[in-house]
Write a protein that binds this DNA or RNA. Structure first.
Lengths: 340, 340
DNA sequence: TTGAAAGCGTTACCAA
DNA sequence: TTGGTAACGCTTTCAA
């Protein structure tokens, strides 16, 4: 058997000991040279020999061994969710990532698909991240937060529509979106505003606060707010369009531009004039809104720049133990075009 | 000073030694119990004591220490790029991830923003992944592949439009898309086909092969293919629309549905009838295509199911050293609607 | 300026 | 059935 293995014994991975051997110095010296340790002075010739040996061998330090020795990592864990981030969030993610890299953190995304929710924090904790920035759509229980804390995480931060008790929060307060859209429609004299509630799974944490924001805008006036469940398909949209007249709606905030496009098409196919009979407002300010006829009014969203937030994360890591901090990242502004 | 530190000494992270102490057993026993080691028989009462001690302390094993001891990790590294994946790719990613998780791999995404390209493979290698599945849009040099190999990666796999020499490849051959779109247009009698080439950075690895595929479809016939640079904004689209008549185009393959929508709007605003004068075909089969008037013809893309690919990755990891394998994941089919 | 050695948390071998 | 111990790769303190 021993000769029959089809697994060629892989050449072992070079270690700092190999580099030391090749350079004719000790492992300590290798470490000093490769980490540019300033507290110790090494002759230039030794430095060169070490560096050459390292490149010759293709030596790459072993992050796990390093952090084991150090007693901590500089890993920031970004758990990911199942559904794709929009352009805005995606850009924000990458900005945050490079901001953190600039502060010498290693950012790593980690998906939790197929894990039982109660196992999730443990799976994260095994990696000993120094900070976790989790979508607030991942239910994070006090136990989960505590597991992370006990495993050495110095900051647990949620990112999303709502804060989570016991953790810091980067909040993207969706109420602003609904408030802004409804406010815009009210200003333009609309009084009976439908608010599209997507039935697709996972959107509730966004749609519910948007509805609440719309209600808030209408409070105290004579306007009414009507939640309108909608699936993202033409049939559902047609049914909804048919209900608009019976409901007496004169405006709809369609959750976002994509649902708005779907609904607007259905309204037009039903013979309802937009904006004459029903005004429509989307959100996200996608290019497609400018291409529709009538051009789609929308709510433009902006996220805070990420570098200050990277700095914030760094601060929370260096001074842990403070009370949970909440920071709102979102700004919303109505963009009036032709559909409202 | 010693009393003035505002950093409360954090309670140290519990280790298996702590669990052993609390349970009154040795570290070895703890390891046996918590890993359900079958080669050794431990009394039920001991097992219970160990487990209780572990939960009481909130013990979570230290992945780095484990893999240091084991001499290898089960980490599959998925480097990410700057621009957002479409719905299709996103779903595929998550399927692949859970497929690999089912095989007991830890999947981790790692962004390389802000790293010099030559440092990228080294940064990956520090994590000692057992496999790397990198977008082929990240330039992967032979040196890079070699660095990864020498650091213990048993499989380096690229994922994207083109294979990369020296690595395994999951190919999404974009030529099929162009071939399919142009073939569809030719079948319907069009003879002078424009192919939109987005000017946005990072799309060339997709657009170039699509163009090549279109050319391939036209080869040998009397048809002509015309590349049409286009930025994703209305001004650029208007300019392009104005060029259509002078160029004598009777059809355009618009790269994808979003560019198609942009262009179709511009054509209509210029007074060009779609599909009477110019046919338009997109790609991706987005919902928006069904909402346009005329309804947008498109190329529907499908990716292979991910579980077999997870199995493939597993095989490559277990039997490294074979010749680079190429697997095509993409299937394309024309969807005829009204715009062609 | 350099080297020896300890120790980080884990697991596996061998002994009891 | 359980425990002692060595080793994984690295950094750092101390000693030379």
């Amino acid at each position: 058997m021993s000769q029959l293995s089809n697994q060629p014994a892989p050449r072992p991975v070079p270690t700092s000991a190999d580099v030391a051997r090749l350079a004719g110095v000790s492992r300590a010296t290798v470490s000093y040279v490769l980490n540019n340790n300033a507290t110790v002075r090494i002759s230039e010739s030794t430095r060169r020999r070490v560096r050459e040996a390292a490149t010759d061998l293709g030596y790459v330090p072993h992050a796990a061994a390093r952090s084991l020795r150090a007693g901590h990592t500089r890993m920031v864990l970004l758990p990911t969710t199942n559904f794709p981030a929009g352009r805005l969030q995606h850009r924000f993610f990458h900005e945050l990532e490079s901001g953190l890299r600039r502060l010498d953190y290693t950012v790593v995304q980690y998906g939790s698909t197929g894990l039982a929710p109660e196992d999730v924090p443990r799976a994260w904790a095994e990696l000993r991240p120094v900070a976790v920035i989790a979508p607030s759509t991942i239910a994070l229980t006090p136990q989960g937060i505590s597991v992370l804390g006990r495993s050495g995480a110095r900051a647990v931060i949620t990112l999303g529509p709502q804060p989570v008790p016991g953790a810091h929060a980067l909040v993207m307060d969706q109420r602003k979106v609904g408030n802004c859209a409804a406010g815009h429609l009210l200003e333009r004299g609309r009084r009976h505003i439908g608010v599209v509630m997507p039935e697709e799974a996972g959107l509730a944490p966004f749609s519910e606060p948007r509805l609440a924001g719309a209600r808030q805008a209408a409070r105290g006036g004579d306007a009414r707010i009507e939640p309108l469940p909608l699936r993202y398909d033409e049939e559902s949209a047609a049914r909804l369009a048919a209900r608009c007249r019976p409901l007496g709606l004169d405006a709809v905030f369609a959750y976002n531009d994509e649902y708005a496009m779907l609904l607007m098409r259905a309204l037009q196919d039903t013979g309802i004039d937009v904006p004459g009979e029903v005004a429509v407002v989307g959100a996200d300010d996608l290019m497609l809104g400018r291409l529709l006829r009538p051009r789609l009014s929308t709510v433009r969203l902006e996220l805070a720049t990420a570098q200050p937030l990277a700095d914030l994360v760094d601060r929370l890591v260096r001074q842990p133990g403070g009370p949970p901090e909440h920071h709102d990242l979102l700004r919303a502004g109505a963009v009036h075009r032709e559909s409202s």
